[in-house]
Design a protein around this nucleic acid. Structure first.
Length: 661
DNA sequence: ATAATAACGAGA
DNA sequence: CTCGTTATTATC
């Protein structure tokens, strides 16, 4: 039933009229009369009999195409259960809205639609038998895939072999700097396809998708895979979905819209850069692409690949629990591939170099950039997105406002608030600018454009490009040039950057967020990975204290170490992913009402409340991971009770919310 | 939303 | 004890 009310989150029985018998197959969309009105629904299964005494008739089969595959139906139920949500909510994410014209085009191109649907349903029902038959057929004639770049990782070639053999290998991959991750993912997919199975690969954004798409076309040839992303529009999206559903192709790549893609004989699920927050679905029940894919792997005896330059605490947990094996390069290889890295303070002798002073660059950053440009190599400068951090500057002379006690950056908690130090927390009530004596402050982050202008002046005659929110560059040529980019928008440079400067890093590190360190490291590594190796002159300068753990992890290119540390700390503090948390958000009475009605497991702790957006508050429920299912069920049931008695104020339930504070 | 049903209380 | 009204609950 396509109604999101939690108390109606169960199947209902209907009679199938004679006229609809042929079309009424599991997986089709239907319309039924429910509580007096026509509502949309899903036909989950056919049965001979029903417990229910008085059945109504199915009103209509919307389309005879069984868009919901049995595998995805099972997955959607599991995802709903994990996230304390309703099946209907998950199905809305899993099956794109129908586009009649696209449907007509695809089914007309195929063999007779009904016969095709038959074969398809059978293939799904007998997936295991199918795989066995395939394995037999392959014996002797299996094509080995060249492991290429995977040879740099001791466990790499074995991973590819396992994929071709159809074994449910699970890997957490830490990519080397300079690694062409898209080629490696294409290799993994090719290995899976060589074994006669399909794959689903999820990336964070359109740029990563374009890159992967191209790599797959190069390895598999055209027409063997399909891209599935909401950004391509409803018609293309639905068309791509149907191409996969009918089994025309069995490799689907896309953004998180693809995480539920129906793929025949699925053999591999993969996600790149699982720390990117774009992988978190913003619509109820807020599932995370990594978790959906891992659930899929778990349910279906499917291999899983979780990769990135940086490792998340969640991926580290997979390694530590033994659920997945890590695929990492030896230290010697890491050292050989890593650019030369150095930290530098916001240094006081900044004024000595006239060029550096005008660009407000620490002198080490300035000389590093200058040397790279002289060697006719491109330079990447990573600056935070404007508005990302409300730092504060003197309204008169634009000098950054610093804490009188510790020289940390000041920030304004709100537009009218008193500035406070982001480092030591002291309130600077009577601030006076040490440069000009001004007493007025303005919130500002030097955005990419402003930085570009300043750097252009510091390095006259050098072409300056910016890549950010409005315009994201995919790549830049190899010669001398400056590239100013916000995190996530760094273009790839031909041959690699001669220098990468990571500026304003305090802005990333001092965010009041559980993941601040992890996120800073992830962004730095993504940028540093684009530099040439140190042996080829590549250098990275990070403007941050070299003693800080995330900075250390960057300098040693060891995000596994950092992730292990991070996970240990979260265990200590009782934070995810060491425990399972859920947040309950709404007006105070509604939140209290829901929690009062929830039969939470005995180990559950209820924390809060903390104020949330306008007039609402937020409570957190924490349980050990072993009780996660019980907590989700209790919260879903409590939400059901409330919706059944039509409680007025809505409450938002979120399991594993991305931000906790 | 809306209909069936249970619960309740007043009046006979 | 019955009828009419109102809260509750299920909706195939």
């Amino acid at each position: 039933m396509d109604v999101p009310l939690p108390h109606l989150d169960r199947p209902f029985d209907y009679l199938v009229p004679e006229a609809l018998d042929a079309d009424a197959r599991p997986g089709v969309r239907v319309k039924v009369r429910f509580a007096g009105q026509l509502v949309d629904g899903w036909l989950l299964e056919r049965a001979e009999a029903s417990e229910h005494p008085k059945l109504a008739y199915l009103e209509k089969v919307v389309s005879p195409v069984p868009v919901l595959s049995p595998e995805v139906a099972r997955l959607a139920r599991a995802v709903a259960d994990r996230y304390a949500g309703s099946l209907a909510d998950v199905l809305r994410l899993a099956v794109p809205p129908r586009h009649a014209r696209a449907e007509k085009a695809v089914t007309a191109a195929d063999a007779p639609p009904s016969a095709d649907a038959d074969a398809d349903a059978d293939a799904d029902a007998d997936a295991d038998a199918d795989a066995d038959a395939d394995a037999d057929a392959r014996v002797g004639g299996r094509a080995e895939v060249d492991p290429r770049g995977w040879r740099d990782y001791p466990a790499g070639p074995a991973l590819l072999r396992a994929l071709t053999d159809g074994k449910p290998a699970r890997a957490v991959w830490s990519a080397l700097p300079g690694e062409d991750w898209a080629d490696r993912y294409a290799d993994a997919v090719a290995a899976t396809v060589a074994g006669g199975r399909g794959a689903v690969v999820v990336v964070a954004d359109a740029r990563d998708l374009d890159r992967l798409d191209a790599a797959l076309t190069a390895v598999l040839g055209a027409g063997r895979h399909v891209r599935l992303t909401a950004a391509d529009g409803p018609a293309r999206r639905y068309r791509a979905f149907l191409t996969a559903r009918t089994g025309e192709v069995d490799v689907v790549v896309g953004t998180r819209a693809a995480m539920f893609a129906p793929v025949r004989r699925l053999g591999l699920v993969a996600i790149w850069d699982d720390g990117d927050d774009l992988h978190a679905e913003p619509r109820a029940p807020y599932p995370h692409a990594r978790d959906v894919l891992l659930t899929r792997a778990q349910l279906g005896d499917v291999a899983a690949l979780v990769g990135g330059y940086a490792r998340t605490a969640e991926a580290q947990l997979l390694v530590e629990t033994g659920w997945a094996r890590e695929v990492v390069a030896d230290r010697a290889v890491v050292r050989a591939r890593t650019p030369a890295m150095a930290p530098t303070g916001d240094d006081p002798q900044l004024a000595r170099d006239p060029g550096a002073a005008s660009a407000r660059l620490p002198s080490l950053a300035w000389t590093t950039a200058r040397d790279a440009l002289r060697a006719d190599l491109p330079v990447l400068v990573q600056v935070p997105r404007r508005g990302y951090v409300p730092s504060v500057a003197c309204a008169d002379c634009r000098a950054p406002a610093r804490c009188p006690h510790c020289a940390g950056p000041l920030a304004l908690p709100s537009a009218q608030g008193t500035p406070a130090c982001r480092w030591c927390g002291r309130v600077a009530a009577a601030y006076a600018c040490p440069e000009c004596g001004g007493r007025r402050l303005r919130a500002s982050v030097t955005g990419a454009r402003r930085t570009a202008e300043e750097l252009g002046r510091a390095f006259p005659g050098v072409p300056v490009r910016t890549s950010g929110r409005e315009e994201v560059l995919a790549g830049v040529p190899g010669g001398a040039g400056l590239v100013i980019a916000t995190p996530g928008a760094e273009p790839v440079a031909e041959g690699g950057y001669g220098a990468v400067l990571l500026l304003d890093s305090w802005a990333l590190l001092t965010r009041a967020d559980l993941r601040a360190g992890e996120e800073a490291l992830r962004r730095w590594m993504a940028a540093a990975a684009l530099a040439r190796p140190g042996t080829a002159g590549g250098r990275v300068v990070v403007v941050a204290d070299g003693a800080l753990a995330p900075v250390q992890a960057l300098l040693r290119w060891d995000s596994a170490w950092f992730a292990a540390r991070e996970l240990a700390e979260r265990r200590e503090l009782g934070f995810p992913p060491a425990v399972r948390m859920a947040s309950v958000t709404g007006v105070a009475e509604a939140v209290a009402d829901l929690l009062a009605g929830a039969r939470l497991p005995g180990e559950a702790e209820v924390l809060g409340p903390v104020p949330a957006e306008e007039g609402r508050e937020r409570m957190l429920v924490r349980v050990p991971r072993s009780r996660a299912a019980a907590m989700a069920e209790a919260l879903h049931a409590a939400a059901g009770q409330r919706s059944a008695r039509k409680a007025a104020d809505p409450v938002r339930l979120q399991v594993d919310p991305l931000t906790l504070f």
